[in-house]
Amino acid sequence: MTAPVPAPRLSPIAGLFNDLVAWLNDRLAAHALLLEAEVAVAIAENQQLKEQIS
């Protein structure tokens, strides 16, 4: 069992850490969207190549 995270008003370091984690989560979500878009483009290009070969 883990200890509860202290409220930012009780611990400035906890508040900073919580903000950092939230910022990193936002960055990771944006990066995941970018990677998903790249996969969609690669799938579309692959499909076009398959149609050209047929």
Rank of each mutant, 00 (worst) to 15 (best):
I53S: 04
L49Y: 07
V5H: 01
A44T: 13
F17H: 07
G15V: 02
R9L: 01
I43W: 00
P12N: 02
A29K: 09
I13K: 07
V41W: 01
P8W: 03
A22I: 05
P12W: 02
N46F: 08
S54G: 10
T2Q: 12
K50N: 10
E36T: 04
A22K: 14
V21S: 01
P6A: 04
A7P: 12
R27T: 11
V41A: 13
A29L: 05
A32Y: 05
R27Q: 14
A44V: 08
D19A: 15
E38F: 01
A37V: 04
P12L: 08
L34F: 08
A14P: 02
V5K: 05
S11T: 04
H31T: 10
A3T: 12
R9E: 06
A7K: 15
A42S: 11
R27L: 11
I53Y: 12
L16W: 11
D19V: 02
M1G: 10
I43F: 03
V41Y: 02
R9W: 02
D19L: 13
A3W: 08
P12H: 02
L28V: 13
E51W: 02
E45S: 06
Q48I: 10
N25P: 01
A22W: 03
Q52Y: 00
I13E: 07
D19K: 14
M1D: 13
E51N: 05
E38S: 08
Q48M: 11
I53Q: 10
S11Q: 01
I13T: 12
A42Y: 02
P8E: 06
P8A: 10
R9P: 01
D19N: 15
I13H: 05
A7F: 06
V41E: 13
A7V: 10
A40K: 03
L20F: 09
I53P: 00
H31A: 13
A30D: 14
Q52P: 00
S11A: 04
I53V: 15
E36M: 05
R27K: 14
F17W: 07
H31C: 05
Q47H: 09
N18W: 02
L10K: 11
A22P: 00
K50A: 13
L10E: 15
V39R: 09
P6V: 05
V21C: 09
L35E: 09
R9G: 03
T2E: 14
L10F: 06
R9C: 04
L49M: 13
S11P: 00
P8N: 01
A30F: 07
P12K: 02
L34A: 12
A44K: 14
E36W: 01
D26S: 12
Q47T: 13
Q52L: 14
E51M: 03
W23C: 08
L10V: 07
A14Y: 04
E51P: 00
E38K: 07
E38C: 11
D26P: 02
A29G: 12
P12A: 11
Q52E: 15
V39T: 05
A30T: 11
I13V: 15
A3E: 14
L33C: 05
E38H: 08
I43R: 14
L28W: 01
A42E: 11
T2K: 14
W23N: 07
M1S: 15
D19H: 09
R9Y: 04
A32G: 05
Q48G: 10
L16V: 09
A7M: 10
N46Q: 13
L16D: 09
I13M: 09
A40L: 02
D19Q: 15
P12G: 08
A32M: 06
L10Q: 14
S11V: 04
